[in-house]
Computed example of a mutant assay.
Amino acid sequence: MDLEKRHLKELDWTILLIFVGLGAFSYLGISGSGAGIETAQKQVVWYVLGFVVLGVSLLVDYQLYKSLAYLLYGFGLVLLVGVLFTKPINNAHSWYDLGPVLFQPSEVVKLFIILAVARYLSKNSENPDRFGAFYQLIPPALLVIVPLLLVLIQPDLGTSMVYVGILTTMLVVGGIRLRHVLYLGSLVGSFLATMTVLYFYRDDLFFKIIKPYQWDRIVYWLNPDLEAMGRGFQLKQSLIAIGSGQLMGKGVNTATQASYGWVPVGESDFIFTVIAERMGFIGAGILMMLFFFLIYRMIRIAMEAKDAFGSYVVAGVVGMLTFQVFENIGMTIQLMPITGLPLPFISYGGSSLISNFLIMGIVLNIGMRKQKLMFD
């Protein structure tokens, strides 16, 4: 073990307090959903296990994670390939059924991707021409694209989008050139233009690329009133519930639209809706402020890290959490399409919560070992 008193003095205790606050919101949100208080009590157990995992991840110097980065990445690919041969759950091959619990490998693979990309980028961090040519973007991009494709096959579009967010953030921090951003932007623009042409003139090809259910999410995101009691039901009920919460909310002990099950998957995907209905604009605002301070503290850790690897790892985590929070909250208020992404540290789910605690444990590990001793 490498944990010493000098390391504990550097531990960011503010982040731990933020986790306690997020845990309280998680309990209130889940207990107020159709899942009820029993599910909320299970989440408390997951939170306790999460803090244990976080504590264990602090025991060794984070350089160990750097040395194991590629090995863990390979293990993650094996998990993603293996899950494709499991029995589908909710029409997706995304979980290993371990009896009492379901394990979703794509959650922990987020960490493995961040570690692998961070190790690659840190190797060339001192080279001013590390991204001088466009082809130099290919290796880190492939580290993300391979698991991304495996997740898309499951299918899980939401998690694959998180992988893109991770890569984008780490490349920006790594010093990607503006001209390369313009190249990539033109490629994305060309793809969207091609898809538009196919939609109007060759819809048979269009729907081979874009699945009908994925297109429905876009259509009924833009106008849920087209089928207010059908495919637009989730979003419509979410907007009604959030609006009914008004400024102060209906109260944590009051029967609500969510508690009667009118907000689908209120314990997971739409837990922000439940919180906004029960605690109103003020409660939802406090929750978003907790996320803001969490990201702010992580940015400080990234800036103070003692090496490039640590900075890149924290940058990847910042990109991951920022994207997930923005997407999850955005989809409940019609700002973003519905993707099924959980709200980090709030939505019910053991795989997601434990994986996030493990990831944040490494972030805190980097922060508490930021000081370089003169004779290290």
Score class of each variant (00 low, 15 high):
H93T: 12
F112G: 09
L59G: 09
I89Y: 03
K66C: 12
L77S: 00
I113N: 08
V56N: 02
A40F: 01
V56L: 13
I30Y: 10
Y120N: 14
I37L: 07
L59I: 07
Y65T: 01
L49R: 08
A118R: 10
K110M: 08
Y65F: 11
L64K: 11
L121H: 12
G34S: 15
A35G: 06
T86R: 09
I114F: 11
V48H: 13
T39D: 08
E38L: 09
I30R: 07
G34T: 12
Q43E: 12
Y47D: 15
I114D: 13
V108T: 13
T39H: 11
I89N: 01
F25M: 03
G23L: 00
I30P: 06
V117Q: 04
V78M: 05
G36D: 10
G82I: 07
K66F: 10
D97N: 14
V53F: 15
F51H: 12
L121D: 13
F25L: 02
W95E: 12
L59Y: 09
I30S: 07
I114G: 09
G76V: 01
L79I: 02
L115Y: 07
R119I: 13
L28D: 08
Y62T: 03
K42M: 06
S122Y: 13
S26H: 02
V101S: 00
L58G: 04
W95G: 08
A92H: 09
L72W: 05
P100D: 02
D97W: 05
S122G: 14
K66M: 14
S106N: 02
L59P: 00
Q43T: 05
A35T: 06
Y70E: 07
D61W: 05
N90T: 13
V44A: 14
G34Q: 13
W95P: 07
S94T: 14
G23E: 00
A24H: 00
W46H: 14
S26R: 01
I114T: 08
